[in-house]
């Protein structure tokens, strides 16, 4: 009886330790392959807000209101060389040629000049900062003048930027420019001054078809999570592993 009991407790002990070892082994083996890490990088704190953006290309009608509102809201220079947000119109003809235009960033609207019988497909792609989780632009800033905020938004400190333009070279998406007045790097802030006041970013506010959404990637009940769940989304240039947090629904392979 005594020995039996001892055997049982030893068996239990062995069982427990095996289970424990197995769990440790399994989690340590699985952790590096967590797909979300590859997709978007990982927030430092999963209980806090971590912003992402969703753009539905199917819904975009190319009115250019987002690009226009962006300039008005953020006092971006009006000249056609500086954009925090812009819209591109892709036109793929039956002969396979790809034509892309973004006249004045789409601010004045678009027209389609290719006759319908020659068209293979055509669509609009709104562009803006991808607020990458592994930003190539913040990586190269020599002084720490551009950074990812705790909410996952890439910002520029215009009082500290030395204007070396290295970040502009490093952004694969062409989202940065050197501001002609402040002589510092400038870019989309996801309207940080609005979202911290409970307002939507200007481009989201004015989009007439609801093609743009933004939200907390950590909020499993949130709008952005729903968008990502219901659509097959893709990011731009995934091969560069920038951890882009701008997710496109209906992104065509031609888009760069």
């Amino acid at each position: 009886m005594g020995t039996k009991r001892m055997n049982a407790s030893r068996r239990n002990f062995l069982k427990k330790s095996a289970a424990l070892a197995g769990t440790i082994l399994a989690t340590s083996a699985l952790a590096p392959f967590n797909a979300i890490i590859f997709a978007a990088g990982e927030p430092e704190d999963k209980t806090k807000i971590w912003y992402g953006i969703g753009i539905d290309i199917e819904k975009c009608i190319g009115c250019g209101m987002c690009a226009k509102a962006c300039k008005s809201e953020n006092n971006v220079p009006k000249e056609p060389f500086y954009y925090r947000s812009w819209v591109e119109q892709y036109t793929i003809k039956n002969d396979g040629s790809i034509n892309v235009v973004s006249p004045n960033g789409g601010i004045d609207g678009f027209t389609q000049t290719v006759p319908e019988e020659e068209l293979f497909k055509t669509f609009f792609v709104p562009k803006m900062c991808n607020h990458c989780a592994k930003s190539p632009c913040t990586q190269v800033c020599p002084v720490g003048a551009t950074f990812e905020s705790p909410e996952g938004i890439t910002l520029v400190d215009k009082e500290y930027c030395i204007g070396c333009a290295y970040c502009i070279q490093a952004c694969p998406y062409g989202c940065r420019y050197l501001h002609p007045v402040t002589k510092t790097a400038d870019k989309c802030t996801l309207c940080y001054h609005r979202i911290t006041k409970g307002l939507k970013p200007a481009c989201v506010e004015v989009c007439p078809t609801g093609a743009r959404i933004y939200g907390d990637l950590n909020d499993k009940e949130g709008e952005l999570h729903k968008f990502l769940k219901e659509h097959n989304c893709q990011v731009l240039k995934p091969n560069l592993n920038t951890g882009s947090k701008l997710f496109y629904n209906g992104l065509s392979a031609e888009v760069r």
Binding site: A69, S72, E73, N75, L155, D157, E159, T189, Y192, H193, R194, T196, K197, L199, A202, E205, V206
Partner: peptide
């Protein structure tokens, strides 16, 4: 400083 910028919309 960025959060304190004035809004237009």
């Amino acid at each position: 400083e960025i959060a304190a910028l004035p809004i237009n919309y």
